[in-house]
């Protein structure tokens, strides 16, 4: 299975503050990688560097030659509250995922892509609604549609459920899992909640400014570095949850 993205010894600092030190990991085709770590561990900085939004001090990212900019979808942290007064419809927001159209009107292909993704995410009835009039869950689905409208091979999500209540959070994780399992989208999910993501992810990158653990979910129980970081009790609890086996192998 080919590697879509490879990070080679990536280090990033803001002024004198070192945020990430010598980070190595990869994202494979059809991967489901969760990047986990406490607040301030450098997760979002790593994701932004991966997307070209933050420059790196040393090291490099290597992208598979078959990947182009349209193959990477991005779902940022929820902007639900900021969007309350933004004067745009759901359709206009989804269309920004197709950005690079240069005319005032959408092309037929753009219209078709917007319709298809809105059916897949069950938001077709919201297309003409104002973005500020949606619930938190609907808003996040719209941003998901924006990320997926160009059919990316990789979807990068930054704490997508942080502003959602637990029931909607669970639905959202199921949706991501569906996209991964049935639409063959590789997932890179950033979260501070190792417990939730380990239900769905195949691989874990645990960060705390440097890589604490990078490997499969099934091997986290035997990682000495992770046990040292989180404590034996927390890791053991993670490995013996009743729903663990069910999700990771579904």
């Amino acid at each position: 299975m080919s590697k879509y993205i490879q990070a080679h010894d990536v280090s990033i600092s803001f002024g004198r503050l070192e945020v990430l030190k010598h980070v190595n990991f990869h994202v494979k085709e059809n991967d489901y990688l969760a990047i986990v770590g406490p607040n301030g561990s450098g997760k979002t900085t790593l994701m932004k560097a991966l997307l070209g939004l933050v420059s790196i001090d040393s090291g490099s990212f290597e992208y598979h030659p078959s990947l182009s900019i349209k193959d990477i979808g991005y779902l940022p942290q929820s902007s639900f509250l900021q969007d309350k007064h933004f004067p745009a419809t759901v359709k206009e927001i989804i269309a920004t995922g197709l950005a690079n159209q240069s005319l005032f009107r959408y092309s037929k292909d753009d219209e078709k892509a917007i319709r298809q993704i809105s059916i897949l995410l069950d938001i077709k009835h919201l297309l003409n609604k104002k973005i500020g009039h949606l619930s938190g869950g609907q808003h996040q689905r719209v941003l998901m549609a924006r990320a997926l409208v160009k059919n990316p091979k990789i979807l990068i999500l930054d704490e997508p459920t942080s502003a959602l209540d637990p029931k909607i959070r669970e639905d959202f994780y199921s949706l991501i899992h569906h996209l991964h399992a049935h639409e063959n989208v590789s997932i890179v999910l950033i979260s501070h909640d190792l417990q939730s993501v380990s239900d769905y992810a195949k691989n874990i990158l645990y960060l705390d400014q440097e890589v604490v653990y990078f490997g499969s979910v099934s091997d986290i129980c035997t990682s000495e570095a992770l046990i040292e970081q989180l404590g034996a009790q927390a890791v053991t609890a993670l490995c013996h949850r009743p729903d663990h086996e069910h999700h990771t192998h579904s």
Partner: peptide, 23 residues
């Protein structure tokens, strides 16, 4: 403005997303 409308709109709504989308 009409010619660059979609780019200007994308940047106005979410500058980071616009960058990632190639704007």
């Amino acid at each position: 403005v009409l010619y660059y409308y979609h780019q200007l709109f994308a940047v106005t709504y979410d500058v980071d997303f616009a960058k990632v989308s190639g704007v």
